[in-house]
Structures are given as structure tokens and as C-alpha cells.
């Protein structure tokens, strides 16, 4: 069990987590056209709530302060984290989704992101402020008792399983009549409303589901790295997920998967090994983020549909009952 294998396994876990995130954003933006400019916040909320649900109640002499401390097993904690993220999504939707213009939602998301970040950072009693929480127990390892080198492969399996389930859900949603209605709202919400679709309700569904995805991804991450502080989910992270979706292909779940591999895993991880510039510790990270920002703009200019564009809907399950052709004009 070499360090290379360990490192590759880590990458696989990250890939799975980013795949979930990109699918979630695809449900919001790719399907429903919702501009969520603080997607990472929902991820963080999911992570924090999963973490504090799993951790034991903080003792008075502990140097960490946080809410809950329920000592719950992983599964219910993960669900709690997802629910918290979904609830925040619901609140944001309540404020912003009634308005038709996408700017409103974008403004509200940016503001919510700033407020939540500020709150978590400053308010030490929620999630231990700027120092963050640490020491979240490894999921299921109280029963498994595996050493870290073996446990990581268990975790690859765990995240892989969750990713598969959420992938199936994402694909089903996209192909379902629900997905079709969401796309109709994305294309022209007046038309969708004129055909009886309650556009507010449908957009809310997409908003909340996308946030649930983010929450679950967050829970999986904190189970893996067992600690999180505000430095781990800066606004910059949101852009990476956006870049992944736009590069891979918005409105295409395979594209989202490809993007999750290309941007957060291949690009961000590959640049991790660049040597640090002495005396300038953040230079590499800054350049990396500049490239991500440039990528967002460049993709929209050169290939706005992404590498794998949205595909036309097909209905292979409809068996043709009779030969068809267009009716001809009499005249």
C-alpha cells in the first residue's frame, strides 16, 4: 500500500464528491436556469451539520465550541446535513424565486454567501468560528476499526455508492417529465406558466434538490477529512464547480461528470505539485484561481455549450404503432 495508491484513492474520493456537486448545480442551472453564485455555502452547511451531529457534545474544558454534538451515527448525520442545506435553499428560494429576473436570485445568493460566511467565521459558538471544527469521527470506523490506509478504500466505496445513487437520481430527474418542465421554464417561464406550470414551485424544487446534493457532498467531505474551517470553503470554491459544469456541458449529466473530473480533480490537483514560490505562499493558488475565472469566461466565449452539449430528448421506449408521415395540404 504505497503513498501513490493512497493519493490516487484520495483523488477518487474528491472526484466522487465533486461529481455530486456538479450534478446538483446542473439541476439548478443546467435544468432550471437558476443562478446560484454561492453554491459552496450549501456544501459547507451540509458539512458542518453532518460534523457536529456526529461529534460528541463539547466538554467545558474542550477548546472547541459548537452546536448540537449529538454523537449520531453517520447516516442520520448526513441526512441532517443535507436537510440543513436544503432548508437554507428553501429560504433563499422564498426570498428570490418569485421574481422572474435571474439577477435577483444571483444577488441574494451572493449576499447569503457573504452573510453565512461572516456568521460562521465570527460566531464561535456555532461551528467554532474561524478555527473551525476538527476531530469528526470517521464514518463507520467505530465498527470497522480499520487503519487509515485500508479505511480510505472503504471510503472510496462509500462515496462511490452515494455518488451512484445520486447519479441515478440526477439522470432520472433529467429524463422525467419533471425535468422537461424545468427545462421549459428555463427556456421561457411565461410559456410554461401559460400551460399551467406553477413556475415558482418547480423552480423551488430544483433549488432545494440542488442544495440537498451540495449538503450530501459536504457531509461526505467532512467524514473524509474530519475537519472544516472557513478557509476550506471560500467563495473561490463555488467558481470551481461552475467551471466544471460549464466546461463539461451544462444540461448534460455526463458533461457534468466529465467537468468534475477535468476541473476540480485534474486541473486543481495537477497544479498542486507546482513548487511554491519562496516568500509568496499564495501565488500558485492565486494563479490557479485566475485560470479558473478565465476558464469560466473563455468557455462562454469559445464553446458555451461545453465539451458535451445538452442532448436532444429521445423517446426510445415509444414503439411506433403505425407508419407516420406529415399530412399534405389539399390545395
Amino acid at each position: 500500500m504505497g503513498p501513490i495508491a493512497y493519493y490516487l484513492a484520495t483523488l477518487v474520493v474528491y472526484f466522487f464528491i465533486f461529481a455530486i456537486l456538479t450534478w446538483g448545480l446542473n439541476i439548478q442551472f443546467g435544468s432550471a436556469g437558476i443562478l446560484n453564485f454561492t453554491y459552496i455555502t450549501f456544501f459547507a452547511i451540509g458539512a458542518y451539520f453532518t460534523g457536529v451531529a456526529m461529534m460528541a457534545r463539547p466538554t467545558t474544558d474542550s477548546n472547541m465550541r459548537y452546536i448540537l454534538g449529538l454523537n449520531w451515527p453517520f447516516i442520520p448525520s448526513l441526512l441532517l446535513g443535507a436537510l440543513a442545506a436544503g432548508l437554507l435553499g428553501l429560504l433563499v428560494g422564498l426570498v428570490a424565486l418569485r421574481r422572474l429576473r435571474s439577477d435577483y436570485l444571483a444577488i441574494v445568493t451572493v449576499s447569503v454567501g457573504a452573510i453565512v460566511y461572516d456568521f460562521v467565521n465570527v460566531n464561535t459558538s456555532a461551528f467554532n468560528g474561524g478555527d473551525g471544527i476538527a476531530g469528526v469521527p470517521y464514518p463507520f470506523n467505530d465498527q470497522l476499526n480499520l487503519d487509515p490506509n485500508t479505511y480510505i478504500f472503504f471510503y472510496v466505496g462509500l462515496t462511490g455508492f452515494v455518488m451512484l445513487v445520486l447519479g441515478v437520481v440526477a439522470f432520472r430527474l433529467y429524463k422525467s417529465p419533471l425535468g422537461r418542465t424545468l427545462r421549459a421554464i428555463r427556456e421561457d417561464s411565461d410559456v410554461a406558466a401559460a400551460f399551467g406550470k406553477d413556475t415558482y414551485r418547480f423552480r423551488m424544487i430544483a433549488m432545494v434538490i440542488g442544495c440537498l446534493y451540495a449538503g450530501i457532498a459536504g457531509g461526505l467531505l467532512i467524514g473524509f477529512i474530519s475537519a472544516l474551517n472557513p478557509g476550506g470553503w471560500t467563495a473561490g470554491e463555488t467558481f470551481i464547480i461552475w467551471a466544471a459544469l460549464l466546461v463539461g456541458g451544462r444540461g448534460n449529466n455526463w458533461g457534468a461528470l466529465l467537468g468534475a473530473f477535468l476541473v476540480p480533480v485534474l486541473f486543481v490537483e495537477a497544479t498542486r505539485f507546482l513548487p511554491e514560490i519562496p516568500g509568496h505562499p499564495v501565488l500558485i493558488a492565486a494563479i490557479r484561481n485566475m485560470i479558473v475565472g478565465g476558464l469560466l469566461i473563455g468557455v462562454l466565449w469559445f464553446r458555451p455549450e461545453g465539451i458535451l452539449p445538452e442532448r436532444k430528448a429521445r423517446f426510445p421506449f415509444v414503439g411506433s404503432t403505425q407508419p407516420r408521415k406529415d399530412a399534405q395540404l389539399d390545395s
Binding site: A235, G236, F239, W242, M290, G293, G294, L296, I297, L300
Partner: peptide, 9 residues
């Protein structure tokens, strides 16, 4: 999205 990307850049 372009101005959003620009802000990160």
C-alpha cells in the same frame, strides 16, 4: 456569469 468569473480572476 462573465462578471462573476471576472470577480474571481
Amino acid at each position: 456569469i462573465v462578471t462573476f468569473g471576472l470577480s474571481l480572476f
